[in-house]
Design a protein around this nucleic acid. Structure first.
Lengths: 217, 217
DNA sequence: TATATTTAAATGATTGACATTCGAAAACAC
DNA sequence: GTGTTTTCGAATGTCAATCATTTAAATATA
């Protein structure tokens, strides 16, 4: 009998919990995260909390200044611009690489995701909508052939997801999500590098800078 | 009086030591790193070693499999290809962004570096040559305006530096380092995006794949 | 009000301990 | 001798308790 539970380290679980709490606005940007408090709260040792915080630190979800403590990251307009720039760079490359691997079944899955986007938009469930957005882009990126690009993109997505929760009050901007992704899918279907490249750039700029331009961070 | 020592965390210092020991071939690729052994060796606690190992893990200099231990990374040919690809992507973008910031003084510094490269090549001091290579590219990348690209590049450089130590037996390939960088500088001097873009791509491909193609990893 | 001093809280780091798990050695079967 | 099972030691993940140092906040002083 195999009763191995594939025990994921506790620190990983805690890290995920903290991520979720940031995304659910249970923890706010700029909040200080005190190791001993969290240890008590999660009923684990300080060492475990420390390891979890280090994970989040590498995702730039929290900032740690030696001896001064750990604080939840805040995103300035400039930060978001940097992220968008990096995202465009990585995603364009990843999509290019994914193109030859995209098959019928993938399009089917992606299509379902866009359908779900419509549903979530109607429900005004922005959290789920953001998750779908992450899934959609992540799904394609993961078909690219460079594991390092994938890894960096994963980490970047966490940051994207994080500043998006800042913006869920500006729901009018989210109405376009569904259509945007349908268009993106159409571009992918052509399998034409130039069309895809152009659309990716355009898509990111449109969706992100739309939010960014109109509203204050 | 200010007698603050700006104490860098011990774990960072240990991490740097370990890096150096890998680069000096004191520690070999694939070696297992046992926490308690290192703790004794460096005369610090296991917790500190753990934190150091986590730092290296995020640089992909070591691999950690839960409950199985930490091993020094090994680089397959495919790994190096991935790194080269990512490097080309990031460096091209970074150089483009750095271009408008490049001034007289920068060229002077870069020129001195290439001079040093000649010296180190003649001395057959490959370790110093590799460091100069890192410095040269890093110096330009750090003039780009996206701090996130810089951060990722820093981490990538550590990986590049690491697989290079694999190759220092193939010193014939290193003769071209000096000339290659002189050429690269010349391209930068033109301040022409297209010329620079082309040269960066060409430079990385030439220097790296030259090593990669001829020799086995 | 501004400056200096005291104090309390949090972090970096240590020690020692323990359960669980992994892998290798030992014992066993074929 | 080869293959399988069992045993056991070593290493990791985790914990708890502790301490020095530093930081920030509270207090007292000028």
């Amino acid at each position: 009998m195999n009763d191995t539970v594939l025990q994921e380290p506790l620190s990983h679980i805690i890290a995920e919990h903290l991520r979720q709490r940031i995304w659910s606005k249970d923890i706010h940007f700029g909040d200080r995260l005190v190791e001993s408090d969290l240890a008590e709260e999660f009923d684990v040792s300080r060492s475990t909390i420390r390891e979890a915080l280090r994970i989040l630190e590498h995702e730039e979800l929290v900032m740690n200044k030696a001896r001064k403590g750990t604080y939840v990251a805040t995103f300035s307009k400039h930060d978001v611009e940097e992220i968008i720039e990096l995202r465009t760079l990585l995603e364009t490359e990843a999509f290019m690489q994914a193109l030859p691997h995209l098959e019928e079944q993938h399009f089917k899955t992606l299509n379902q995701m866009t359908e779900q986007m419509k549903v979530k938009t109607d429900e005004e469930n922005w959290n789920d909508l953001f998750d779908l957005d992450m899934q959609f882009h992540g799904y394609i990126v993961h078909l690219c052939s460079n594991s390092r690009i994938i890894k960096i993109y994963n980490s970047l997505q966490i940051q994207i997801r994080t500043y998006l929760v800042h913006l869920d009050q500006y729901y009018s901007s989210f109405q376009s999500f569904h259509k945007e992704h349908v268009d993106l899918l159409a571009a992918l279907l052509t399998k034409d590098s130039e069309i895809v490249k152009e659309k990716v750039k355009n898509h990111i700029t449109y969706v992100e800078e739309n939010l960014l331009g109109v509203h204050q961070l």
